[in-house]
Design a binder for these strands. Sequence first.
DNA 1: TTGTAGGCGTTATCAT
DNA 2: ATGATAACGCCTACAA
Lengths: 324, 324
Amino acid sequence: MRRLPTVSDVAEVAGVSRQTVSNVLNTPAIVRPETRERVQEAIASLGYRPHASARRLRTRRSSTIGVRLDPGTDGMSGSLLDRFLHALVERADRSGLRVLLYTAADEDAEIAVFERLLDGADVDALVLTSTHYGDRRIPWLVEHDVRFVTFGRPWGEHDTTDRSHRWVDVDGRAGLHAGTTSLLEQGARRIAFLGWPVGSGTGDDRRNGWRQAMREAGITDLAGLDLQVEEDPQDLGRGGRAVAGLEPAPDAVVCASDSLALGARLALGPDVPVIGYDDTPLARALGFASIAQPLDEVAAAVLDLIGSDEGVHHRLLTPRLVQR
Amino acid sequence: MRRLPTVSDVAEVAGVSRQTVSNVLNTPAIVRPETRERVQEAIASLGYRPHASARRLRTRRSSTIGVRLDPGTDGMSGSLLDRFLHALVERADRSGLRVLLYTAADEDAEIAVFERLLDGADVDALVLTSTHYGDRRIPWLVEHDVRFVTFGRPWGEHDTTDRSHRWVDVDGRAGLHAGTTSLLEQGARRIAFLGWPVGSGTGDDRRNGWRQAMREAGITDLAGLDLQVEEDPQDLGRGGRAVAGLEPAPDAVVCASDSLALGARLALGPDVPVIGYDDTPLARALGFASIAQPLDEVAAAVLDLIGSDEGVHHRLLTPRLVQR
DNA sequence: TTGTAGGCGTTATCAT
DNA sequence: ATGATAACGCCTACAA
């Protein structure tokens, strides 16, 4: 591999000092325009690029953010992380940030990874996904004064850690409210909700959106319509069976995820409207409506929060109902 | 964020010179055991970790590999990249390698990214996915003497670039051969192949596996059984319609992808055996068989090839038929 | 076996 | 506005 030109090379060609070259790069304003131009020509002619590691060593910042690639995620919605990552990498690049991946089997392992990554100065900020109730990573990061942003709210925490925990999330409640309302407007009355057992922040939030919309429509008797199944990638029949077992049959079903929606769709056929969540390729392919998270906005907000030193510490974005 | 301890700090605590500390880290063999131990204690007590950027600057290697997160991929099989990445990151970590992500809209943009990444010494090797016929990235990388491995064969190239292009791939032909054979053993005779139009290396390779198995079974009349559809995430009815239109109906269908298989499955119902490709969560969920790529092995092979200086320059792995 | 000296490429500080 | 000097943390000679 060819030897790379350095600031000194550029300086020599341009007939200035290394420092001036550095200034042109980092503080162009303080360099006389005519000098600046000469330096820039030299840079172009040599094909010079700053050496990332040298700069990082000097500035003591890696300009790199770490993101975990979780193993879990049923894979169907796994494409969600995929799409989020893509948006994140793209936007990060525009701000001169790199994205480094890591994995960890569980929380303790992940904290050990944090130590390695941070002590080695490999990353100077972290983006966490799939936060959950009682997440031990958060207090660890706060305590160690690490810069981080989570994609996901700190479910159940409203205490002092609040200001030190920056997060971005999507308002699932609003999403399900919109979906349910849209079905109501189309004349459906008996609308079932197919979700996970009570206890997950995300799931409960989405359920509440459905409840609220139903209540607003004057439908207070939700008996039997609140379906809760444990998701099982091996057997999406569960959700389907729960839905098919409803007596009388529902007019429509709103779901906490696209994979649940797939089950419902297969059990009920294409004539009963079904709304999923996440707008995965699956929803597109099968032609059912779904609630799409604005991942590009999420990525932008995450980077914004990572970069800003003060001001707003969290952001709740609104998803969009994709009709089909 | 706390100030990190350096070699000097460790040296001071251990009562030796910086150099000895460095030796303990990099060439433990030449340090007297008793000194070594003292140094290691100091390292542990201070929680010292080498500063990644400083080391990179000095050694001129980043110990980081770049991987592109492509935008394309229909998302269904997108989870394939996900799973591959996961395996790669996990194994890379064991070898002390980091994985950096990048994106690019097209080949030219990607080559521009290469320049940035390499000149900035951000990465010292690249892993490319979704190679295709006439891939311009390959000659560029070879010419610039960049270390890289592709997950995917150089379709159509058997010339001099051969030795300089290291690749790992999965034998789709063998996969479809196995799948088709298994159906034949179950008594099916009229087995259709649902794939993409001729012209993609991957697709043609898979088709050939089916052809070969059929020929070996003495079935030479494949008229009408070789179905070719352009995949369209909006409308997986295409594949389904092609399959449903067969007259007489097929005994079974083997497909070039799980999303094609999904279409076939929905069109034919659960009684006609369908085999997909990639063993995505979709196949698991719907309960159709699929051909699984050994992604963990692929990741291992990729890292192996990246690391080795001589020896084998490519590896063709065999996929596994997952019956359901 | 251990220590000394120098430099990787960059930028911050302080002169000029 | 520009330049000289030093230092970021590490490693590779080479010397002791």
